[in-house]
Design a protein around this nucleic acid. Sequence first.
DNA 1: TCAACTTCGTAAACACCGTTCACTGAACTC
DNA 2: GAGTTCAGTGAACGGTGTTTACGAAGTTGA
Lengths: 247, 247
Amino acid sequence: MTQATRRERLRAETERDIRRQARTLLVNHGREAVTLRAIAREVGITAPALYRYYDSREDLLRHLCDDICEDLEAELYAALEPLGEDAGTEQVYAVCRGFRRWALAHPQEFSLVFASTENVIGTFKPTDRLKVGDQFGKVFLEVASRLIAKHEHPHGEGEPPEPPAVLHDDLRAFQQVLIRTVTARGVEVDEESLPLGAIFHLLQAWVRLYGHVALEVFGRFPFAVSDPEPMFDAMLGSIFIPMGVEE
Amino acid sequence: MTQATRRERLRAETERDIRRQARTLLVNHGREAVTLRAIAREVGITAPALYRYYDSREDLLRHLCDDICEDLEAELYAALEPLGEDAGTEQVYAVCRGFRRWALAHPQEFSLVFASTENVIGTFKPTDRLKVGDQFGKVFLEVASRLIAKHEHPHGEGEPPEPPAVLHDDLRAFQQVLIRTVTARGVEVDEESLPLGAIFHLLQAWVRLYGHVALEVFGRFPFAVSDPEPMFDAMLGSIFIPMGVEE
DNA sequence: TCAACTTCGTAAACACCGTTCACTGAACTC
DNA sequence: GAGTTCAGTGAACGGTGTTTACGAAGTTGA
């Protein structure tokens, strides 16, 4: 039946357990509390045993990041599901709101994944240029690209503005990644329907989305905002309405 | 001559020394390396002695944050100096570029001050609503407000758009803070010359500024950007040119 | 089936960490 | 000059990441 030997099954099980316990420690008591000994205590083994699974605490945290990204991706897709395939416009707003909601509900995970200087996560090497893979903005960018590709007048009425010339190479490389990703999910896309200007716009949107969410999570708005939600919605509008994407 | 006793002078001196050594540890080896024992070793005392100066490691880090903010403020003002009092437009661009340059040159400091979930720094209480004081965005907001107040057509040709109604109270409170701050630096400002819409615009600008800089510092752009500077400049343009602030 | 091999987990140890406590000795006050 | 304040000490406690040698299972093949 199962090809896996008894030992392999047990190993996989404890590994899941380790990650799960590490995760709850992170959520409930913050990054500093994710201690090898604490994890081991919860799992019911001793600290050195963890070295059979991870090279170091850093390595474990790195894997934790991957898990978190996967969960975020799943959550965002789950929020998209009920909207149906063709609700492109609502999807964009749903992904953005979903990202904010997730970040506010999981501040520790957010700051680990999205605000670490350390090489905990791969700040990517040149080779990663060609894959969005396992990357957080993935869902956002994918949904948005799909929408742009389908949309008749993706940027109001006129052509999208030309991005700075120095960025053309980077944008073109990224364009290929997006086209491949979106195509893999069953939407026809080519260079013409997803122009560089649109990608540049998307990038700017990601900057604003991330900026607002991070400021809110870290409580770093320059004054006390008693209810940031309408501000967030206003921002979404001012990003997407000029792009021709109304709610 | 000096009112300070010998003891007071010595104390002040070691305190400066402690902060300086802590700072270099942070810069060179990251937040985790700022340990009481390491600091003490550099200063030439023992770890428990530090408790004569700070309640805990957390407390020390908090003070470190204050120092960092002061330095950042000084650096930004220094970049403004050569531009002269009346170069409002250039000042805005200079402050933004200065902020980015500082963040890239001091990633550890940046992430400590601008991206900490923990209560290391005061995520501010309702009482702080009335002071920008010791707050990072201070310089940026002050320079920008001053410019807006002086400018004839601060928002292109038309009136600034109305911000969401729910935010009016918060914005009005913040308006008072800004007016007080700017006035204190010798520029005449009142509610009319610094309307809520303009402040809201400013807030959006801070979101984008922060978003770009943080993404760059943490290497979290969705693809490898080989030279983010022109992207930053393009963003500055798309923020300020619609506000009527051309370089 | 039994020996050889692989692998998970252990206990002990090392060097480091934040923090507390009783203490010394110098600086200060009157 | 006596009494007080206080920066700094050394020892100790319980915690940390990590390495090491070792035992006890699971697996493999003859």
